[in-house]
């Protein structure tokens, strides 16, 4: 093969390898990123209460494009030690709870319209934990929990509370801070 032919072949190989490297990099970024929301909040994994990430009107948050009318708080969770129970009280303000898998995306979202008597309760579990819960459950007294199977073991619970007026900002922050995320041991 002439040198020119070798060069053309090498260039062709380079493009194919470049495409593979591109895809591998895009797929790997969520697992390698250090500035993603989960990595930033990893230190809060052991906390029992949600922590405010962006208070309404707070311009100093690391969250990109924060909504200044929304109090956003999170609980980082891991399902290693058991299912995680998320309990939120709802009030007069708009409130939503969404579940984000680490490196995955949103897999569940619910608003305060679904609250029963002012409470939103969710139990997050792996498929195996759900099977165990179903197997040990008393068939005459089925659980009333809203059980959600998480696609991965780690992730974030995100709570948004809307302060439509500046005077509601403090209340919105209080509501956002008061969500409990505890390991469910029965």
């Amino acid at each position: 093969m002439t040198l020119r032919g070798q060069f053309a072949l090498a260039t062709l190989c380079a493009f194919v390898l470049a495409a593979i490297a591109h895809l591998a990099a895009v797929l790997a970024i969520p697992y390698l990123a250090e500035k993603d929301a989960f990595s930033r909040l990893r230190s809060t994994l052991s906390a029992d209460r949600s922590e405010i990430i962006a208070a309404p009107g707070d311009l100093g948050t690391w969250l990109p494009y924060p909504d200044p009318d929304v109090a956003l708080s999170t609980c980082a969770y891991t399902l290693e030690e058991g299912p995680v129970r998320v309990s939120a009280r709802t009030g007069a303000l708009f409130q939503s709870v969404s579940l984000h898998a680490r490196a995955g995306g949103v897999f569940f979202a619910i608003t305060d319209r679904a609250a029963v008597r002012g409470a939103l309760d969710l139990v997050l579990m792996t498929r195996r934990q759900l099977d165990e819960a179903l197997a040990t459950e008393d068939p005459d007294e089925p659980s009333r929990d809203v059980r959600i199977v998480a696609p991965s073991r780690e992730g974030l619970v995100v709570i948004r509370v809307l302060a439509a007026f500046p005077s509601q900002r403090e209340e919105a922050s209080e509501v956002a801070k008061s969500v409990s995320c505890t390991i469910d041991r029965e």
Binding site: I29, K35, D36, Y65, S96, S98, G105, A109
Partner: peptide
């Protein structure tokens, strides 16, 4: 962008910026 069907590029963008998208059904 706020659903389970978010493509890998969307996930990578979120991972790099630290963005927390609005879920479908949330907004």
């Amino acid at each position: 962008s706020g659903s389970r069907e978010a493509d890998p590029y969307t996930r990578a963008v979120n991972a790099r910026t630290g963005a927390i998208p609005l879920g479908v059904g949330e907004g």
